[in-house]
């Protein structure tokens, strides 16, 4: 082989090698983005499911309480407005609006529990105690689902804003930044339930 041919062969080999590296990094980068995007969707679906479960439980809970309207009008109105806000957010599908409705429902629940504990005039049916445990569980699962979602958002955003992730994001048309689920400190705390013995 002549020196000229050797140079050409070397050049082609280097070019092929670069092409292979480029293809592999493109495939790897795309797949990573898809994985993160899927994990984001799964986490969002989990938050949504948990919100739905809690919404149903609140409806059941309100039905088991009598005397609330007369004594704690404000709380009752808060629950009603939280349920309406949730229904509106579902219609629009806006994450921020859904997060606000979520926080509103959390506040309504905590105030409802405080009112029941403090006010002997409010009577609750026997099903209420079971629902109280369910509410604790719902709030706990929601808290974990929100945290998992925000962790998935963090992983996605970190990848999308770092090099070379940002190239793949613009190249394949992924979102460059996803909004976090807004959690108001203290407003979404899991209610405390105690026992006597």
């Amino acid at each position: 082989m002549k020196p000229f041919q050797l140079v050409i062969a070397g050049f082609i080999s280097v070019l092929l090698l670069l092409l292979v590296i480029l293809t592999l990094s493109l495939v790897g980068g795309y797949n990573r983005l898809v994985d993160l995007d899927e994990s984001l969707d799964a986490s969002y679906a989990q938050v949504f499911n948990r919100l739905e479960q809690r919404h149903d439980t609140i409806n059941q809970m309100v039905a088991t309480i009598s005397g609330l309207q007369e004594h704690e009008r404000e709380i009752y109105e808060l629950i009603i407005s939280a349920r309406l806000a949730y229904a509106d957010a579902i219609k629009t599908g806006d994450i921020d609006q859904l997060a606000e409705a979520d926080a509103l429902e959390s506040i309504a629940i905590s105030q409802l529990l405080v009112a029941i504990e403090d006010n002997p005039m409010i009577t609750v049916s026997s099903a209420f105690n079971g629902l109280l445990d369910t509410i604790y569980s719902m709030e706990s699962t929601l808290s974990v689902a929100r945290r998992d979602y925000n962790q998935a958002v963090l992983a996605y955003n970190q990848n999308a804003r770092r090099f070379p992730g940002l190239i793949f994001v613009s190249l394949f048309g992924f979102e460059s930044r996803v909004a976090y689920w807004k959690i108001d400190e203290g407003k979404t705390d899991v209610p405390e339930i105690s026992f006597t013995n």
Partner: peptide
């Protein structure tokens, strides 16, 4: 995912 109960 956080389901369960906690009582004290």
């Amino acid at each position: 995912g956080g389901a369960g109960i906690f009582k004290r």
